[in-house]
Nucleic acid binder design. Structure first.
Lengths: 200, 200
DNA sequence: TTTTGTTGATTGGCCGATCAATTAAAATTA
DNA sequence: TAATTTTAATTGATCGGCCAATCAACAAAA
């Protein structure tokens, strides 16, 4: 069986399996065996490539964040006007891939883990900073810097909040509603700075 | 040592110890030994009174929620006008007790656990519903029902979002700023329904 | 002497990690 | 090209440790 060049294939399979297992299980308390089974390999192989469970988890978060980042960059570049870029950021945050129950569960599990693992925390802080800075950068073209920071803070909180509320599946808000709520927030708070004639 | 009437004392001590342990540890993966040590009793006693770790955790969440609920009720009753009641709800949500790092960590851990435990989920859904219904009830006196629901959804999301962002301690927002952001949200979205002369 | 509170000791199970062993492809040498 | 050595991939078996849960035993109040 030993076919050369399997490392990247296995690594990806294991990371994907981890995301799925964590998502299904709704917790980082998944066993290496379970992950390995999902990936169709032995537990020993997971250790071989990642050294430890901790490292495999870190790699999984990193992968999740990279995917999200790529989507954001792409979305931002696809439009020109600042206000449209803001909408693009919002849209990506609630993109269907992100909204899958397992993905949401995984995010939540990682957030909780950030209390424990410094590395996990670092990565999530990075995500938060990027979201914030993307929002601020575009808001600054629409309103004074002070207000931009404040509004960005609020929008970021709203995005995260809508997200976490999905995890409870209590009053399941649709993707569209989530986007609409966040858009409304921006619109309402940008209104004071709009040219008098340009009311929507 | 055996003095009669210890049961309620021990139960409370164990629940408090659990909250502290979970908060410190930032995860529900705390051992019964650790909890028992915090409470100054043996692990066996914790099992004696709660039957299982799961039950002890449930009792801890219930306690957290009861405390929060009591605070909310009290705050709501202390003022009259709907708009003031809304402010009171917000203030309680960011009340200093709730904002303690350990409390935030505990909340987060429980949210994550809701993916796993149906009972945990039930309790958190209950919290979400209460928050929502409190907001909606008061908003309905200030704007049409449809808008009330929408604005409540947004405000609840914002509260949860600001909360979860605290857990990362990245750009630590102060309690006052969190309250201000949420207040701003309400104010901005209620503005269209206010009497023309009554602009703040 | 019954009830209540309490613990130490123990057990059974699970899981992360390690390691030696195996297989087959690739590289090297003859 | 055939023979060999090296390297990469992979796993089964196993170990050590931790932890939830159990239980028998004991102490003191009722």
């Amino acid at each position: 069986m030993p076919k050369v060049g399997m490392e990247p294939v296995r690594r990806k399979a294991l990371v994907d399996a981890t995301l799925k297992a964590v998502g299904d299980h709704g917790s980082l308390a998944v066993t290496m065996s379970e992950i390995a089974r999902h990936a169709g390999v032995s537990p020993a192989l997971a250790h071989h490539y990642f050294g430890s469970k901790e490292q495999l988890l870190i790699a999984t978060i990193r992968s999740l964040l990279q995917q999200l980042r790529a989507d954001v960059v792409k979305a931002i570049q696809s439009v020109q006007a600042p206000r449209e870029k803001l909408s693009a950021i919002i849209r990506v945050s609630f993109h269907s891939d992100q909204f899958r129950p397992e993905t949401i569960a995984a995010w939540l599990a990682f957030y909780a883990d950030a209390q424990r693992s410094e590395e996990t925390r670092r990565l999530l802080v990075l995500y938060a900073r990027r979201l914030r800075s993307n929002l601020v950068a575009n808001l600054k073209r629409l309103c004074p810097a002070d207000d931009a920071v404040r509004i960005a803070e609020g929008a970021a909180a709203m995005i995260d909040g809508l997200y976490i509320r999905q995890s409870l599946r209590s009053a399941p808000i649709s993707i569209d509603s989530s986007i609409a709520l966040t858009e409304d927030y921006l619109t309402a708070h940008l209104r004071p700075f709009m040219a008098p004639g340009a009311r929507a």
